[in-house]
Computed example of a mutant assay.
Amino acid sequence: MSLQLKDLYDGFRNPQAIKALAKLIEKEAAKLEQSIGIMEVCGGHTHSIMKYGLNQLLPSNIEFIHGPGCPVCVMPKERIDHAYTLSLLDDVILVTLGDMIKVPGSNGNLADARAKGADVRFVYSPLDTIKIAYENPTKKVIFFAIGFETTTPMTSALIHQVLQKKIKNILFHINHITVPEPMRVLLDDDNHIDAFIGPSHVSVITGSKIYEEFPRDYGKPVVISGFEPVDVMQSVLMLVRQFNENRCDLEIQYSRSVTKEGSLQAQKLNAIYFTKRDHFRWRGIGDIPKSAYRLKDAFAHIDAEVIYKDILPTQTIDDHKFCMCGDILKGKANPKDCKVFGTACTPSNPLGSCMVSSEGACAAYYKYGNLL
């Protein structure tokens, strides 16, 4: 890391700046007529909050509520079972992102499938799938795509390359999900959410416009925040000031990267290949209409869900009865409310998805709560 870049990051993590913002928040919070619950939608924000102890710096009348913005955490068991089933086919190499390896399905996880001889590979970039396909011309390489709007354009770029290069042995299993729909569900579920800290990287792609409905239709202010601790604390301050000024607005704290319109090029590429699913089941939350993408019918010839539909499991499967991931993802509980947190459920032996993912709330509490 260059000295200039290090100085930039150090500035966003400066203890004096964080403490100064905490004092300003405390001053503003003293004027509040009510306590407020602020949901950070993104799991990346949850980890920043826990890593830097930001929750401990807030006054008692302001509370962070952890949201469902961890794509691995909300992937239902039946979708994991799809990956597991496909990986065990003799002529298949399953490719996905690294957090997926320990997510439990009903038959086990992808690490278990590897132990049974499955060829499962984890990549940092979806485009690495092309190299794997070239090196294994007799195999079907299935890219199991996950993530919110942040990673959807990466999958679109891979599809574009596959079609342009006329690569015949790459297929896709699409599990990309979107942010606004679960936000609506949580508000309709009366979760005592008073405001939102909006995801940063998602918003770089989509633009801030996707959140306009929440101040307008629900009376819930939104501030789109960067991931650094100074970003988060400044966003909290902006939200508290909105309450004190009787405003309800959509604001962008992360203005160094987020615009109203977002990346039009990425949105255009996504629109070529994807359309919304009628329904998608979110782990711990349930069925949410129009909350996920699928490949358009014109691309059925590269859609693993279509090609292998006769062997893919269709049964919906609930989580372990002792796991509270559902309530945690809904913002109705935090990890320490779970009886098996840190005992029967740990990162090395996770019962639920919130303990698996690097963005999961349980993993954050375990890592930064002096349990390691």
Rank of each mutant, 00 (worst) to 15 (best):
D99A: 13
F299L: 09
C338P: 03
Q242F: 10
G352M: 09
T138C: 06
V230E: 04
E78Q: 09
E359N: 05
D297N: 07
G98W: 09
R247G: 08
V72M: 12
G11H: 12
G53T: 03
R216M: 13
A22P: 01
N246A: 14
A20L: 12
R294K: 15
V204A: 12
F274K: 04
P313T: 11
T206L: 12
L5E: 14
A344I: 09
S203V: 06
V204G: 07
T155G: 14
G43W: 08
K139N: 09
R13H: 15
T155Q: 10
S225I: 02
Q16C: 12
E40Y: 00
H192Y: 15
G11P: 02
D188A: 11
N136Y: 04
P104H: 15
Q234D: 14
V185Y: 01
S87I: 08
D310L: 08
T206R: 10
L163D: 08
T96R: 06
A292M: 03
Y365Q: 08
A111P: 03
V232Q: 14
D90S: 10
P71K: 05
N61H: 02
G69H: 02
M39T: 10
N349R: 14
Y308P: 09
D119Q: 13
D318W: 04
R241W: 13
Q56P: 02
G360N: 11
N246V: 12
V74C: 02
I210T: 10
R281E: 10
Q265W: 06
G69R: 07
V232H: 11
E28H: 07
T138R: 10
A292G: 01
C345N: 05
Y218E: 06
F214L: 08
P180V: 00
H45G: 08
D91L: 03
K296D: 07
L372G: 11
F299T: 02
S235Q: 11
C362F: 08
H176K: 04
K51A: 10
I205D: 01
H45K: 04
Y273F: 11
T151M: 06
K332N: 13
N334R: 13
V232T: 15
K367V: 03
A304N: 13
E261Q: 14
L372E: 12
K51C: 02
N191R: 12
V240R: 08
K166S: 13
P153C: 00
E40F: 03
L97M: 07
T155A: 13
E28G: 02
G69P: 05
L329Y: 01
I80P: 05
N270D: 14
K140W: 04
